[in-house]
């Protein structure tokens, strides 16, 4: 008797679990898995005549034979890594200050100040940078008013402007995981290292950074992914010559209606980002599960 009730209870538990995870499964299969399978299939075909396609590697070989494509690809990767590193350098002191130096209401206020810029859309934020940096913009006007330059200066449409925009856009995604891990760091560990004769630099290097490593790595992964896949900021701040790989994909899909080539580029970008994240985890000796939990 009891075995029967036990069994039915277990069955209803299974059903409950299935119901609970079904939205997630639907989400993953419909919006992640299915598009990627389709992307792979489109990228591996070639149009031979109207509405006639044949299997081909040509979209991938085109990437390696056309220097513009893979140079843009490498440039995007290097710029993204640089943007991630810069974001980390700027966000770390900010996060340390929020997590360890301030208490109570002021701490919450600082955290909200980091968050507020993300209440408006990325487009508006990027437009803000354009108002500051453009030829007729505020910085240019200020420099002329100060008499440091005698004609308008164009500060938009170069790599520095792209970098500024990318770092600015990414800050929050680095600060949040860093604050979370740093808050878990026992103050007495910092004090102990200091008490045992460590200099400020040694204390940060020996105690704070090892403890914050999961937060650093998870922040870096998120920022790197966001930067690599960013389209708006490089296009608006970098102009036509920004040469961001997402623009190549956009051009293939929208301007040239070459879905096959665009799909191949999309896959290559996915492979690239996965590889760099994997390499980053290996280098920092962190496991993906530890970093993401």
């Amino acid at each position: 008797m009891s075995a029967v009730t036990g069994l039915s209870f277990r069955d209803s538990g299974k059903l409950g679990l299935l119901l609970l995870i079904s939205p997630l499964l639907l989400w993953l299969s419909l919006f992640i898995l299915l598009p990627h399978v389709d992307l792979v299939m489109i990228s591996l075909r070639e149009r031979v005549a109207a509405r006639e396609y044949a299997f081909s590697w040509s979209n991938y070989t085109a990437f390696f034979t056309e220097p513009l494509y893979w140079r843009t690809f490498m440039r995007t990767a290097v710029m993204s890594i640089l943007a991630t590193a810069l974001t980390l350098l700027i966000a770390f002191p900010v996060a340390f200050y929020i997590a360890k130096m301030v208490r109570g209401r002021f701490k919450a206020l600082l955290f909200v100040l980091c968050l507020i810029p993300f209440w408006v859309s990325e487009l508006v934020r990027t437009y803000g940078w354009m108002i500051l940096l453009r030829e007729t913009g505020i910085f240019s006007g200020l420099l002329q008013w100060l008499g440091w330059v005698d004609q308008p200066v164009e500060m938009l449409y170069n790599d520095v402007a792209i970098m500024v925009g990318l770092v600015y856009t990414s800050m929050l995604f680095m600060v949040v995981p860093l604050v979370t891990t740093l808050e878990g760091l026992d103050d007495s560990l910092i004090e102990a290292a200091y008490d045992l004769g460590g200099s400020h630099f040694r204390v940060i290097w020996d105690v704070v950074i090892p403890h914050a490593m999961p937060g650093i790595v998870s922040g870096c992964i998120v920022v790197f992914m966001l930067t690599l896949g960013n389209y708006l900021t490089p296009t608006l701040l970098g102009g036509k010559d920004s040469l961001w790989f997402t623009e190549q994909i956009y051009t293939q899909f929208i301007t040239r209606f070459n879905w096959e080539q665009g799909s191949a580029f999309g896959m290559l970008l996915l492979i690239l980002s996965s590889f760099i994240v994997w390499a980053g985890l290996k280098l920092s000796r962190q496991s993906f599960t530890r970093v993401m939990t």
Partner: peptide, 19 residues
């Protein structure tokens, strides 16, 4: 400063470096 004082401290929760 503490890192130059000839005193050392054993903390309440010991504060051994876990790494």
């Amino acid at each position: 400063p503490p890192n130059r004082r000839p005193v050392n401290m054993v903390f309440q929760h010991l504060a051994l470096f876990p790494n």
